[in-house]
Write a protein that binds this DNA or RNA. Sequence first.
DNA 1: TTCATATCTTAACTTTAATTTAACCTTATA
DNA 2: TATAAGGTTAAATTAAAGTTAAGATATGAA
Lengths: 230, 230
Amino acid sequence: MKILIIEDDTILNKTLSIGLKKLGYSTDSAFDGEEALILFDLNQYDAVILDLNLPKIDGLEVLKSMRKTDQLIGVLILSARCEVDDKIAGLDNGANDYLTKPFHFGELDARLRALTRRRFIQANTTICHGSLELNTSLKTVTVNGRSVKLTKKEYGILEYLALNKNKVVSAEELVEHVWDSNVDLFSNSFKVHIFSLKKKMAELNDGVDIIKNTRGVGYFLMEVKDENSK
Amino acid sequence: MKILIIEDDTILNKTLSIGLKKLGYSTDSAFDGEEALILFDLNQYDAVILDLNLPKIDGLEVLKSMRKTDQLIGVLILSARCEVDDKIAGLDNGANDYLTKPFHFGELDARLRALTRRRFIQANTTICHGSLELNTSLKTVTVNGRSVKLTKKEYGILEYLALNKNKVVSAEELVEHVWDSNVDLFSNSFKVHIFSLKKKMAELNDGVDIIKNTRGVGYFLMEVKDENSK
DNA sequence: TTCATATCTTAACTTTAATTTAACCTTATA
DNA sequence: TATAAGGTTAAATTAAAGTTAAGATATGAA
């Protein structure tokens, strides 16, 4: 878990950094609002610890700016006891939490855990086409429950075809989307990949081709009937 | 959310009760320490608002007594002064917070939300994936009851994978979240760590790999069947 | 502090699997 | 039937991941 610590007090910043590292977090430190936003743009954080009294750019401005690009990230606001006023309280929209100084590290850890957890509530993203099912999170493929192991390129081709179901996709378009831009379009690497992909997919479907080609036009996915609905 | 209001000033008690009900909380009111403890034993509260100057049983005694049966419940202490004295500060075990009179309802609401979040935090200390269990508070790992000792980096990698169960995570993303930003992405430190982590996890699981890799894509956790459910 | 130990990083090397290449085959259709 | 698009196979290449040991750092106890 990577935490961005935004705190201008160098000693407290260091203390937080050392303490959190002991707890197993990795941390980056920013000492003013400007530095904070630069680091925030550059890296992927799981949570942010934010002091509101900052040089250069005010803490509340930093918070607003971060929220523009990331609605999900949890922000833990550090504030002195007696300092929590309506301004801060009003910010509590669920993505923020606050902690009053002085605090216990155990408490900080617990709150960070709660804040970071929210980012990982994820829906499983699947693309379906008849009984063909692609899980884009796991990059796995099943046909009527049976699964194959595909290589990265094979999966990439199949996913692009599945995204363009009910459409014929030219070999050029497939190569363009699955390979990076400096690939040689005239090599027959693509032919080899689509060959092995077609073979693997047919094996999953009792030997019947799922990926078809229309000469001179391109490739498309056949709709595979669900075995249960036969 | 049910709040127990312990406050002998009948007007303030009533004000709190009405105000909190407006905010969507349900409340019970106690006007002395004895009544407070009876209500506390009888009902399940999500947080307690406690004034320290109470008739019959002193507020601090009430707090101690409640702590005997419930270490976790959040207690918001109402105090007259801004400076929290040592006696009260010494009681701060993380489960308490303070609010000085006079206060704004917005602030009270924010603090109550922070206190009640504790229940959520507590409920989310473990990450389960089949029979693999991570305790994010203790940073411990078990598979079917058996446990391993992991280093910080190993635990960090495993936790990130566990939070992203049902997703393939690239080596780059893992490094990005487990190491801080000054790390050299091209070093093979990561490879060494994941190697030893994979080995330790497989040893826990009768030699069968739990952490798998898809070449060119990334790492993911296999679902480990619960031995009891076999 | 110092020393012992655990953890992390580095570097050289091995293994494995994906990808590309090249040569050849098949088939539709102009 | 000539030709170009597409299919097939095996081998070569390349890149990713795995492995080991040694050296550097950090951590914690005496």
